[in-house]
Write a protein that binds this DNA or RNA. Structure first.
Lengths: 344, 344
DNA sequence: TTGTAGGCGTTATCAC
DNA sequence: GTGATAACGCCTACAA
């Protein structure tokens, strides 16, 4: 049942049917009523989206390209909240959300790409060539990293991390601060970072900005940042974090850090769980800080000291930008220091 | 830059270009190489998805229609794990995931509908008319409810809930069991359910099956199910559950339930948090059971006693069914009783 | 207010 | 192995 069939059936032209659906003001209400009623009766579900999108050039589909796998992104509190914000705006604006991952087979990513009206690219972007495969004139908003020629949405990572670390170091003097990074090294590394590792450049990972903030605070408090031990995890999940944090917590008492600056709440919460299992007193034996402000860290005791970022807002803003509802320049969102009991 | 442009530019026919991209065996490797190279050089990104989908009738897009808002679904552990499973399969099969919500404006839902090759409908379906707007011959898989004429994926809610409640009542004799439901009443209700409320029919909510399981166990243990107090929450979030559970926990000691059979882990965890805040001893003063087996309930102490459902498997199965990788009949997935310390 | 016709960018069916 | 051509279903000047 196509628009044309319906037109023939009703003895009117295809244009009239089309107008009945898309431009009510272009025909008499009576006729329109009749057409809509007959359409329903004959089982015409409205203009076909595939044909319409070919003709008009727009699909009302916005694609979000996620750096991580969909599996990860949908389960992670931070990215799913982001998506949630995106979805909220798209929904009210009559658009729908297509989920893509930079990890997925390139061909289908590219294929689906020409379907979407715009792209929101979230997180670290592994390959330059991906951008080559996106439609040339596509509108694109980058989130948490930069793409030249396109606006981006960022969070004030460096100042936020400075503030956290500064707080941690001011509240109680610390002897052995350490940092647990997330995807900082060029080569995958789940464990201690040593001088042989090369680090990803700042354009490719927000971890660098966060690290810079931590370092600035450490320097302010008289530490030599080169001597601050650092670990790294490749994925923000309990499973991946657990062994690395066990390695840290199982160090001899006089080597074990007494302050762990973590790049994410997920890491910090994993550390917290493992530390509690080992009978370490929080915060006396070990202070912990996170980043993100996810619910799981706040609905528990002790609550996590962290920098809250409004991931949902980030998504809403990115969506509004892609739809042209916001000025087309890059934006920087703030964070809020949340003082919990893990580092009071 | 279209396929036709490229054909003209290279002096070959459009068919040849199309074949170069879609049917490598239909032309000489040399020619194909040349075409691909020139395409890249001239900035042709490959066949346009909109046009292709119109022509072939397939978009390689599978839509998931969620009963709840996208915002909720993306943040809820159970549904995001489900989506995650769906995404995993679609990804490996070269399909992409379009997220729709039954809550969103009907027009765009219908619009986008004709775009997708198939539909996975998840959870309670509020309106019949939604189905009328889906393409007639669309393949469709229902999850957690039934749609006549289409296969569905279910979890063995009734037996699982019987098992949980039976365990709870066997382990320690209880005097005052109570049930906290999720979306059981026809009219929205956040609070105690009284006889005036009408309940949703079993076709529309899995809560009915779960309730039936609880009731069967209660009867077995000599309770009159009509006298078991029931509460209801409309949404599976901390914010919505909190006041209802406060109402329950703040009852006088001799009225407060000593066993709370909850329809979800989210509800049970909220109860747990609030009970701990009130200094109630778990499980001595209050036993709690959940449903779902989400991580949050297992990575804490005390761990939640619950029925674990593999939401990811559910998603994977639904996706495989919609892609025709599984026999086209309905399936029932099992659950696993997980004994935690909230009801040992 | 309604109808006509061209084309959006592909792919599939044929010929050659 | 390669090329012409006809759909796919719709939208929208423009004409009536």
């Amino acid at each position: 049942m196509t628009l044309k069939d319906l037109a023939r059936e009703l003895g009117v032209s295809t244009a009239t049917i089309s107008n009945a659906f898309n431009r009510p003001d272009q025909l008499s209400p009576n006729l329109r009523e009749r057409i809509l009623a007959e359409a329903k009766r004959l089982g015409f579900r409205g203009p076909d989206a595939k044909a319409r999108s070919l003709r008009t050039g727009r699909s009302r589909i916005i694609a979000v390209i996620l750096a991580e796998s969909l599996t990860y992104s949908l389960n992670d509190a931070v990215s799913s909240e982001f998506l949630s914000g995106v979805a909220e705006v798209l929904d009210t604006q009559g658009h729908t959300l297509l989920l893509l991952s930079a990890r997925q087979a390139k061909c289908q990513l590219v294929d689906s790409a020409s379907m979407a009206d715009g792209f929101i690219v979230y997180g670290l972007m592994p390959s330059e060539e991906l951008f080559d495969s996106l439609p040339l004139n596509a509108s694109l908003v980058a989130v948490d990293f930069n793409v030249s020629g396109h606006p981006s949405v960022h969070v004030d990572n460096e100042p936020a991390c400075f503030e956290i670390a500064d707080h941690a170091l001011t509240a109680t003097p610390r002897k052995r601060p350490a940092i647990v990074n997330l995807r900082l090294t060029r080569e995958p590394c789940n464990g201690r970072i040593d001088p042989k590792h090369t680090l990803l450049p700042a354009e490719l990972t927000i971890t660098r900005s966060r690290l810079a903030g931590f370092h600035r605070a450490l320097e302010k408090h008289g530490f030599d940042t080169d001597r601050i031990p650092m670990w790294n995890v490749e994925e923000n999940t309990f499973q991946v974090c657990e062994p690395v944090l066990e390695e840290i917590l199982d160090l001899p008492d006089d080597e074990r850090p007494d302050l762990l600056l973590c790049m994410s709440d997920r890491i910090a919460l994993t550390a917290l769980t493992l530390a509690e299992q080992r009978g370490l007193r929080i915060p006396e034996d070990l202070c912990l800080t996170g980043f993100d402000g996810i619910a799981e860290g706040q609905y528990r005791a002790p609550r996590l000291t962290t920098a809250r970022q409004e991931s949902g807002d980030k998504g809403r803003l990115a969506a509004r930008m892609i739809l042209g509802l916001e000025p087309g320049h890059s934006r920087l969102l703030g964070t809020e220091l949340m003082l919990g009991e893990t580092c009071p």
